[in-house]
Amino acid sequence: MKCNFCEHKCDLTKGKSFCGMYKDEGGKVAELYPDKWCTYSPSRIESVPFYHAYPGSRSMIIGTAGCNFRCKYCSNSFIACQDPADVQDVMFEFSGEKLVTMAKKLGCHNIIFNVNEPAVSLPSLMRVSEYAKKEGIPMGCLTNGYTTEESTLMLAEIFSFVHVGLKGFSNAFYKKYVGVNSIDPILRNIYTLSRHCHIEIASPVIENVNDHELTEIAEFICDINPEIPWHVFRLLPEHDMKESKYPDIEKMNKALESARTYLPYIYFHNFVGSNWVNTLCPKCGAVVIKRFSLGCSGDRLDEFLAPGNVCSSCGTKIAMLGTKVGWCEKREKECV
C-alpha cells in the first residue's frame, strides 16, 4: 500500500508517510489531519511572491503542517519540519466550504496555499477547490514540485497559478541540502505544470553552494518558455544552516547578468529594499510594473503601468494571468 501523492511513494503499511500527513485506511490513502489549517490571513499576492498573476490582489494565505522535503535552511521549520502530530493544537479547523466563506468575508480575490507543501494535503485542498470554483475564487500555491505524475495533474486541477521552487540543478544539491535523491521528477513536473497553468519559478541561492548552477537553471526555464517569471532569492539561512553566511548581493546580481539577456522576467529579491523587483517591458525596457520589496515580510505592488497588460510605451504584451485587481475590489461587495 503505497502513497502516490509524492515521489517518496511511502509504504503506508509500515506506518504514516514521510510527511506525517497520510495513513493507510482500509487499503486507501487517507489524511491524518483533514481540513486542519495553520493559518488563514489576507496578504498581498506580491508577498507570496506571485508577480505575474492578478497584480495588486488580496489573497487569503493558507497552509497546513508537514513537508516531504527536509531542507537544511528551511525558514518555516517550526511548522513544516515538525511532526504534524505535535502542532495540531495550533491548527484551525475549517471545511472546504467554510474556508471559502472565510476568504469572502476577508474580501480576498484568491486563495493561496503557502507555508508548506500542498502535496501533503491534497484531498483537503481538493475539497476547498470544489467550493472555490463555485464561487469563482482562483487558487494558487507554492510547491517544491516533488509530486508524482498523477498528483501533479491534481495540483494543476486545483490551482490555476503555481509557484515552483527549483532549489538547485543537480542531484548532489538535492541529496545534500533537501534530502531527496533526484531532481528529475521536479524538472518533469515543471514542464507538466507549465502546460496546464500559470507558473512562476523560485530559486533560493546559497553562496558557494548552488550559485554556480544559476545559468543551468536559467537555460532550463528558457527552454520551456522564456516568459516564465524567475525569482532568484537571496536565502536567509534558517534551521540547520542558521549560522551560514548571508549571500553577497552584488556578486549574486552580477551572476544573473547573462541570464537577463534571454529571460525577460528575472527578479532578485527576498531582501529588504531590493532594486530588482520591477517588471521591465521585454522589448523597450520601460518599467511596466513597479514593486517594493520588504524581503521575507513580503513585497507589494507600487504602480501598475500596463493597462490591459500592454506596455504603455511600445504596446508589447506583458505575460500575465488576469490583470490588476484593486485591493478593496471584493471588500466593497461581500465581506463582513
Binding site: S43, V272, F292, R300, D302, E303, G326, W327, R331
Partner: peptide, 13 residues
C-alpha cells in the same frame, strides 16, 4: 488593519 493595506499605503518600512 488589512483593509488599509492597499498599494497606496505610505511608510512601507
Amino acid at each position: 488593519s488589512f483593509d488599509r493595506d492597499a498599494e497606496i499605503t505610505k511608510f512601507p518600512f
